[in-house]
Deep mutational scan, measured.
Amino acid sequence: KKYKIKVYVKDKKTKKWKKIKEIEVDTKEEALEAIKKLPPNYEVKIVP
């Protein structure tokens, strides 16, 4: 079972969220580790 991490950042001009990358991992633990490495201003969604 794979997890997709969708990473969004808020556009300063439009104030809208835009997706900047998608990370695919195998476990939820890996997903949480990957999220920890991202800057705090990123919004993250984990999709099972």
Score class of each variant (00 low, 15 high):
K1Y: 15
K1I: 14
K2S: 10
Y3Q: 01
K4V: 15
I5N: 00
K6S: 13
K6H: 15
K6N: 12
V7K: 00
V7G: 00
V7L: 08
Y8W: 04
Y8N: 00
Y8Q: 00
V9C: 01
V9M: 10
K10M: 09
D11S: 09
K13P: 05
K13L: 12
K13G: 11
T14W: 04
T14F: 04
T14C: 03
K15T: 05
K15W: 02
K15C: 06
K16W: 04
K18R: 12
K18M: 09
K18I: 13
K18E: 05
K19N: 03
K19V: 14
I20W: 08
K21C: 07
K21V: 08
K21I: 10
E22G: 01
E22I: 06
E22P: 00
E22D: 07
I23F: 13
I23T: 04
I23R: 02
E24F: 15
E24V: 12
E24Q: 14
E24N: 12
V25W: 04
V25I: 07
V25D: 00
V25K: 03
D26Q: 08
D26I: 06
D26C: 10
T27Y: 03
K28R: 11
K28W: 14
E29D: 15
E29S: 10
E29C: 13
E29V: 07
E29H: 10
E29Q: 11
E30V: 03
A31I: 14
L32M: 12
E33V: 08
A34G: 02
A34H: 11
I35A: 15
K36M: 14
K36H: 11
K36S: 13
K36R: 12
K37V: 09
K37C: 05
K37Q: 13
K37D: 13
L38V: 04
L38M: 14
P39M: 04
P40Y: 07
N41Q: 11
N41Y: 07
N41L: 09
Y42L: 08
E43N: 15
E43G: 15
E43A: 15
V44M: 06
V44G: 11
V44R: 01
V44P: 03
I46Y: 05
V47S: 08
V47R: 07
P48E: 10
P48D: 13
